[in-house]
């Protein structure tokens, strides 16, 4: 195994251990997601036809908001205790370190939402097939949210009111993910092929994977100088 992979695994494991030590943080994101989704039927009424139609959009928007909520913590703890400074000084590639942090952030804040989706989908009376596509689209899409969000988190590091600002910066950039994610589910409900939407999501994921770690590393350097 080469050095970079080792480094990547090391960072992911470290961040996962840290996250498990503060389990409340992980749970808040998940509970927030479930709550926002459950508020919608109360807001718009319990007609099942409408809820079934709305479900993909509601779940996607809730996932978007939930991931914004947890992005503030992506770098802040390391920033406050000085670890981030050491990471910037480290001889290893900062992009790989950042990629590791993105992956572990997704495993902590994105993956639980994907796993929670079937239960919420049943609440909205979605078909099994639609739930499957929704999970697949979230599985492809939530890593993009973590990665694009990391740029915003790095840029707003240590600022007052960084949380709201972060959402303001990142949400417009996430619109394509939202569109293709919900589009896939609507396509399968309408009896169309989902492959185009999922391919586009996959393409966005590859693009994000290629560029966001480097951009985030640059953003961190700007914020820390």
């Amino acid at each position: 195994m080469n050095k970079l992979t080792q480094l990547l695994i090391l960072i992911v494991r470290r961040d996962l251990v840290l996250a498990m030590r503060r389990r409340a943080d992980v749970l808040t994101t998940l509970i927030f997601f479930v709550m926002v989704v459950s508020l919608f039927p109360l807001g718009v009424g319990p007609e099942m036809d409408m809820l079934r139609k709305m479900a993909p959009g509601v779940l996607w928007v809730a996932a978007l908001l939930a991931s914004m909520l947890s992005l503030g913590r992506l770098f802040s703890a390391d920033y406050l205790d000085g670890t981030l400074e050491q990471m910037l000084l480290a001889p290893q590639s900062l992009s790989v370190l950042v990629l590791g942090k993105m992956i572990s952030h997704w495993m902590v804040s994105g993956l639980p939402l994907v796993l929670m989706t079937p239960v919420l989908g049943l609440q909205f009376d979605m078909s099994v097939q639609a739930i499957g596509v929704l999970m697949l689209s979230l599985l492809l899409g939530t890593p993009i949210l973590s990665m694009v969000g990391a740029i915003g988190a790095a840029l707003t590091l240590g600022l007052r009111g960084g949380g709201v600002l972060l959402s303001l910066l990142v949400l417009p950039l996430c619109i394509p993910v939202l569109i293709f994610g919900t589009g896939a589910v609507q396509a399968v409900s309408g009896g169309l092929s989902v492959s185009s939407h999922l391919s586009l999501l996959g393409a966005l994921l590859v693009l994000a994977l290629a560029f966001t770690p480097w951009v985030t590393a640059q953003a961190l350097r700007i914020s820390m100088e």
């Binding site: 740029i151 950039l173 619109i175 394509p176 293709f180 966005l204 700007i222 100088e225």
Partner: peptide, 30 residues
């Protein structure tokens, strides 16, 4: 720092503008 951070955001945004434009266009036509 404000100049540099905002510059990075503007560049990321301008890369994203065509993606956003086409996704919105396809969203609408769908």
């Amino acid at each position: 720092r404000a100049d540099r951070a905002a510059a990075l955001l503007a560049i990321v945004g301008s890369v994203n503008v065509p993606i956003i434009y086409f996704s919105v266009k396809w969203w609408n036509t769908l």
